[in-house]
């Protein structure tokens, strides 16, 4: 039986400066589990981009990380506005983030592309007006 080790996080949508807590925590957890540093880097960066997206666009959300024998799955769920055009959103440089976010160093249109770059598989399910679910897999 392929039993997963699970971690669950709530991403606070009101506090932009604390975004990243879940990613930093998962980095610690994976290190304790003896996962290779390059894998930890991939998982934590992909998850951080997802956290930032949920804070910027969706008023927060939830993150689940499941660690299997051969892979790590990251599932991000929010009840935000959804992504109007996923193909467009996946293009490097495309962003709908407001200016105040740009002044903090985000909103460069690199979030979703980075999530894809650092994972082996990524699926976006988004319903405009209802929310988004992104699942990402990093192979071990």
């Amino acid at each position: 039986m392929d039993e997963a080790v699970k971690f669950h996080f709530v991403v606070d949508g009101n506090d932009f400066t604390s975004a990243g807590q879940a990613s930093v925590q998962i980095k610690k957890n994976l290190r304790q589990l003896g996962i290779a540093p390059e894998i930890i880097r991939k998982v934590s960066i992909a998850m951080y981009e997802g956290e930032i997206n949920m804070v910027i666009h969706a008023g927060g959300g939830e993150a689940d990380v499941l660690i299997y024998e051969n892979r790590i799955e990251i599932i991000l769920t929010d009840n935000g506005p959804g992504i109007a055009n996923i193909d467009l959103a996946m293009q490097e440089g495309f962003s709908t983030a407001p200016d105040n976010i740009r002044s903090l160093g985000f909103g460069a249109g690199m979030g979703l592309p980075n999530m894809k770059r650092y994972t082996d598989a990524m699926q976006i399910d988004s319903t405009f007006g209802k929310g988004t679910r992104i699942s990402m897999t990093v192979n071990l």
Binding site: T17, P37, Y48, E49, F106, A108, M110, G111, N114
Partner: peptide, 21 residues
């Protein structure tokens, strides 16, 4: 640009920036 840094910077780099948040 932080996502750019996350996409391109490597482990053990010295990172030069003017971003301070």
């Amino acid at each position: 640009l932080l996502s750019w840094v996350m996409g391109r910077a490597a482990c053990d780099n010295a990172w030069i920036t003017i971003m301070s948040n």
